[in-house]
Amino acid sequence: MALEAFHPSEPLTLGVELELQLVNTHDYDLAPYADDMLRLMGKHELPGSVVPEITSSMIEISTGVCRSPRQVKEELGQIRDALVRSADKLNIAVVGGGTHPFQQWHERRIYDKPRFKEISALYGYLSKQFTIFGQHVHVGCPDADSALLMLHRMSRYIPHFIALSASSPFVQGHDTAFDSARLNSVYAFPLSGRAPFVLRWNEFGQFFEKMTRTGVVNSMKDFYWDIRPKPEFGTIEIRVFDTPLTIERAAALAAYVQALAAWFLADAPFMPAEDDYLVYNYNRFQACRFGLDAIYVDPSSGEHLALREHLLKTLEQVGRHAQSPGAESALKLLRESVLQGQNDARWLREVQGREQFLAEVSRQASLRFRIDSQPEASAAA
């Protein structure tokens, strides 16, 4: 099977997807209300889309094609407001976060859609354990070779994305000691991890044809890579973010991706190499385990430094490329959270430390999702 042609898109445009939790409001466990939510959301005229996800206590929202972080925030905000109104009618709540704190995977129901049924038949219990919640960010690329070059440049910053978005410290009622435990579930799938190191679209097409000949792969959707090209959209899709607790932070993360991409296109600051991936899994693990307190190994020099230090340095480097509306304030929000050592995983742990009750953690997270976030250092209810 041949790989479809790459359809160039306007460089630096953004598209954002968020997978969200549907919980009841008596014990704040996941609730199978996707069909009811989709029915109510179908009555609203909204940008982007609202679609089901693999289990029936999940829902995915997405923006249209956006040119700025401000537009991302506005579109996500419109959808969020409609979600909240619809959820209120059903006496349920919508929550961000990369994992639900105490749901039991065996209680989940696979959503009645052919692709989800196929995944369930292939992967067994892993499909129900895939009741995890991520943010995907698409960034537009001018051509296919530029997309692959950007993909491999962006891979150096995977630890940044993980640490900034980490919001999955609890799994099945336990503190995992990870800031982002969600990605451990993704890694269980055989076609997860990193994309192959090729820099020409014709070479990537040859790889794709070999994979489809094995019968293991039928489409690009079968790759669960941390970053993958999306030829039909003319983008690369970054998939390592946990779903943040607020729309504001989701837009800020998209702003960071856009600023990095603008830096790459304008300055070509380095040429990626296969050897960059020697430290890839180590850096990825550090960010998942320790969040903003992780150690980062520079792929070029081998230098070990605090991830926070590398993040702050990079935010300064890309600052002059953050020219689109809303970008400057979005990067400021991220910079302040790095300086304070504050991400959503820390906020969730602070609430649990205070309340000693994971249902209350989920309830407070649902309240936080309803409105633009308070200052990131706050753990107030």
Results as ranks from 00 to 15, higher is better:
5 A>P: 01
8 P>W: 10
11 P>N: 05
18 L>P: 01
18 L>W: 05
19 E>P: 01
23 V>T: 12
25 T>C: 10
38 L>G: 02
46 L>N: 01
47 P>G: 09
47 P>Q: 08
52 P>K: 14
53 E>R: 10
56 S>A: 15
57 S>R: 05
60 E>F: 11
61 I>K: 03
61 I>Y: 03
62 S>R: 14
78 Q>W: 12
78 Q>A: 15
79 I>G: 03
88 D>N: 15
89 K>P: 00
89 K>I: 08
91 N>H: 14
92 I>F: 04
93 A>Q: 08
103 Q>Y: 09
105 W>R: 08
115 R>M: 10
116 F>W: 10
121 A>R: 13
135 Q>C: 12
135 Q>A: 09
139 V>S: 02
141 C>P: 00
145 D>C: 08
146 S>P: 00
147 A>C: 10
148 L>N: 01
148 L>Y: 03
150 M>K: 03
155 S>N: 13
171 V>Y: 08
172 Q>S: 12
176 T>K: 05
177 A>Q: 12
177 A>E: 09
178 F>R: 04
188 A>F: 09
189 F>Q: 06
194 R>L: 14
199 L>G: 00
201 W>M: 06
206 Q>E: 14
207 F>S: 03
207 F>M: 07
211 M>R: 13
216 V>S: 01
220 M>Q: 01
221 K>P: 00
221 K>E: 02
228 R>V: 09
228 R>K: 13
231 P>D: 09
235 T>G: 01
239 R>T: 08
242 D>V: 12
242 D>N: 09
250 A>H: 01
253 L>F: 03
254 A>L: 10
255 A>Q: 02
255 A>W: 04
256 Y>C: 14
258 Q>M: 12
258 Q>A: 09
262 A>P: 00
266 A>C: 05
267 D>H: 12
273 A>L: 14
275 D>G: 11
276 D>H: 13
278 L>P: 00
278 L>H: 10
281 N>T: 08
291 G>Y: 02
293 D>N: 09
302 G>C: 10
309 E>A: 15
310 H>I: 02
317 Q>A: 15
319 G>L: 05
321 H>E: 05
328 E>I: 11
330 A>K: 02
335 R>N: 02
336 E>F: 03
336 E>L: 14
337 S>L: 13
337 S>W: 03
339 L>E: 15
339 L>M: 12
341 G>E: 11
350 E>T: 13
351 V>P: 00
353 G>C: 05
358 L>E: 05
361 V>E: 04
364 Q>A: 07
367 L>P: 00
376 E>C: 07
